[in-house]
């Protein structure tokens, strides 16, 4: 038996909206530690890793590990039937082929119950090695979203070069109408951590990425006020949105390599 009760349906809506365009179906892995998910996009260029720790739910019950194959787009549609502040309860029997979703209004005067069919999904689990990154940049998530959008829509760029030095982080593109760059400098004061740009750097690093994936990752912006970019030479970028202390959505993106 699996049961997980989440105080606000809104969180699950935001998570699904953040990942459903990149991966349309995935296995939710349920264990005593919580709910996790890993999936690559069909071109094997990017990967989503989700963790919702059990302590983010109250209660959380998992008698045995379960793998729930879910169509994320269908689940996102179903979650739209919940109001943002509805209490979400997910339940599944062991060996069940359905996931039950229950939405309860805060005043407890409305209860919606849905049964979602599960599917068998063959998915490879990728082992992601522990990496000491050359540079870790933390910035406001809205700023990252804005930069990706402006460089894509404004210049029509396909590839973005991200260069990180002690002075700042520079995003450059060359596109159909010309070229452009946006540089963020490290902020002096850290009175408001969520609004700060902080660069932790062991050595300067420059990498090239497909901009459209970064724009897709930015759909996770509502999940967190800040985002971190972890970069090392010739290894995948990690874009992480932390959900308070109860979990994260991480996106991995393979770099473009100079011929």
């Amino acid at each position: 038996m699996f049961e997980a009760r989440l105080a606000q349906s809104n969180l699950m809506k935001k998570i699904l909206d953040a990942i459903k365009d990149l991966i349309t179906e995935a296995n939710l892995e349920i264990s005593s530690g919580g709910i996790s998910l890993q999936g690559m996009d069909s071109s094997h260029v990017s990967l989503v890793a989700l963790l919702m720790r059990s302590d983010g739910f109250s209660p959380f019950r998992c008698d045995r590990n379960l793998t729930l194959g879910v169509n994320l787009q269908a689940m996102a549609k179903l979650m739209k039937c919940a109001s943002n502040d509805d209490i979400l309860t997910m339940t599944a029997e062991d060996n069940s082929d359905t996931l039950n979703l229950q939405f309860e209004s805060p005043a407890q005067d409305k209860l919606s119950e849905f049964e979602m069919k599960l599917m068998d999904i063959d998915s490879e689990h990728l082992g992601i090695p522990e990496t000491e990154y050359d540079a870790v940049i933390r910035m406001p998530s809205s700023e990252f979203q804005r930069i990706c959008r402006d460089l894509g829509a404004g210049i029509g760029g396909e590839s973005v070069t991200i260069a990180c030095t002690k002075e700042g982080v520079k995003f450059s593109v060359t596109g159909s109408v010309g070229s452009g760059s946006i540089t963020l400098k490290q902020t002096g004061s850290v009175d408001k951590p969520a609004e700060s740009v902080v660069i932790n750097m062991a050595q300067p690093v420059t990498l090239i990425f497909a901009l459209r994936y970064l724009n897709s990752f930015a759909k996770a912006t509502p999940l967190s006020e800040s985002v971190s970019l972890s970069m090392s030479r010739e290894v995948p970028l990690v874009v992480e949105y932390k959900m308070n202390d109860t979990g994260y959505v991480r996106f991995y993106l393979a770099p473009k390599l100079e011929d």
């Binding site: 094997h44 990967l47 490879e124 689990h125």
Partner: peptide, 14 residues
């Protein structure tokens, strides 16, 4: 020009 890398080249299937 730059070639798009794939994650399979960086991560191992477990």
């Amino acid at each position: 020009t730059a070639t798009q890398g794939r994650l399979d080249n960086f991560f191992t299937v477990s």
